[in-house]
Simulated scan of single mutants.
Amino acid sequence: MEKKMAENPAAIRFGITGCADIARKVARAIKLAPNATLYAIASRSIDKARKFAADGGLSGAVKIYGSYDQLLDDPCVDAVYMPLPTSLHLHWAVLAARKKKHLLLEKPTALDVSELDQILEACESNGVQFMDGSMWLHHPRTAKLKDLISDPKLFGQIDIIRSTSTMPGTQDFLESNIRVNPNLDALGALGDIGWYCIGAILWAKDYKLPTVVNALPDVLKNSAGVILSCSASIHWEPADKTVATIHFSFLSHSSMDLAMTGSNGSMHCNDYIIPCQENSASFDFTSGATFVELHIGWNAKPGEVTVISELPQEALMVQEFARNAEDIRKFGKRPDSKWPESSRKTQLVLDAVKKSIDLGCKPVKL
């Protein structure tokens, strides 16, 4: 890492606030991104920060802090990756922006859109880049998917979208993980993995907000009232007939499915959030398929489309974020607005799902 800093003195210097498991993955991503370097780690416990650095084999040049304030006060930190519990985002994200630190914020971005608006306002008024930690959006496969579903001849009008994100929570996870603690991550599965489902639906629709969101009556909560599993339907009525369904759960086998059917084609990706392999990812795509005579088969089989990636998607995320930060620093550009806008729309729909659940699964209009 010291060699990397010497080779690229213009690299964006990252600080990480918090030693959550996901921070290990992003620390590696920062190391892999050619325009970024890991400069500092902070935890509320100096010993925990030191252990994080030691376990990750981080360079001795990485600064270790025993408080988040110390890291944010360091003038050498250009950007902050923040994997803190959602209940802490508002305070620390706003403070980071006021300290002129570019902000890569782990999802869910906030407990509700009113909190997120305060974070985004702080970033806007201080001229710093905001981005949430949705890594899959930065994979080249995602761009290839968009190209194909946007082709009116190959795919046509999107009719149906289905997205699932599930994981088998262990007994220890369901009893003690921060994601099921109402004081730390009150949104539970909705915020943690439902964020991906909602984000994928909006991405497919070019972030056109739906008109109606309706949670389905399969909601499961723990004894503290935190959502463990849920489904919802999403509609763009009346002019747009697209229907989307999402399902997210801490109580099922691992799944990361995204499927779409259009007027002329269909696609299915079974690992859209985290690819099965780092260096390549694939999906099935079919166009113009019909039954053959007597319905004994199909005239076209799904074709597998494979996309190569030179870096893991999380490193591509860091690279894009650091590029935005460098453009601001070097050329005086404004922060790229597409990232806060997409996060805000995802949060709006998430809030609507939550409101529908709270209303006993009644439809909510946006």
Rank of each mutant, 00 (worst) to 15 (best):
G60K: 13
K355M: 12
K153I: 01
G60A: 14
I158E: 02
R344F: 07
L105C: 07
I22M: 13
V80K: 04
L90A: 07
L88R: 05
T109Q: 03
Q313E: 11
Y68I: 05
T290F: 10
D206A: 06
Y39G: 10
Q277A: 12
G15Y: 05
L32D: 15
D284E: 14
A289G: 03
M131F: 09
S67R: 11
L228F: 00
S87R: 10
D271F: 02
K31P: 00
G288K: 09
E121A: 12
L316P: 07
K51M: 06
N35D: 14
I308L: 08
G18C: 06
V80H: 04
A10V: 01
W92G: 02
I246M: 15
T261D: 01
T211Q: 05
L145T: 13
H235N: 08
A259E: 14
A186M: 08
F331A: 14
E320P: 00
M5F: 10
I296L: 09
W195T: 15
A97T: 09
S134V: 12
R329A: 15
I273Y: 09
I357Y: 03
K4Q: 03
T306N: 02
T290K: 14
Q313A: 04
W92K: 01
A42I: 09
A143C: 05
H102N: 10
I273H: 03
L103C: 05
L187T: 11
D218S: 12
L95G: 00
E304Q: 14
N222T: 06
T37Y: 12
W195N: 15
F173C: 01
L71F: 08
N214M: 10
L120I: 13
I234N: 08
P75Y: 04
Q129W: 12
D21E: 13
S223G: 12
I328R: 10
S255T: 15
V212K: 14
C123L: 05
L251P: 00
V305N: 04
I273Q: 10
F321Q: 07
S176G: 01
A281I: 04
S337T: 13
M267H: 03
W298P: 00
W136G: 06
I193T: 11
T306W: 03
G66D: 05
Q277H: 15
S233V: 12
Y207Q: 04
H247S: 12
A6T: 13
Y81Q: 02
R179V: 07
K345C: 10
G133H: 04
S150F: 00
T17Y: 02
G127L: 10
F173T: 00
I119F: 11
P312I: 02
D185K: 05
F285M: 08
F155N: 00
K330S: 14
P168W: 00
G332Q: 10
S263V: 01
Q157P: 00
H235F: 15
D132L: 07
D21K: 14
K31V: 08
L88M: 09
A322F: 07
W195V: 09
K51E: 14
W236V: 11
K4S: 01
F173P: 01
H102T: 09
G191R: 08
C269I: 13
S231R: 05
K4G: 01
H91K: 13
V94W: 01
R334C: 11
A61P: 06
S254A: 00
G225M: 08
A143W: 06
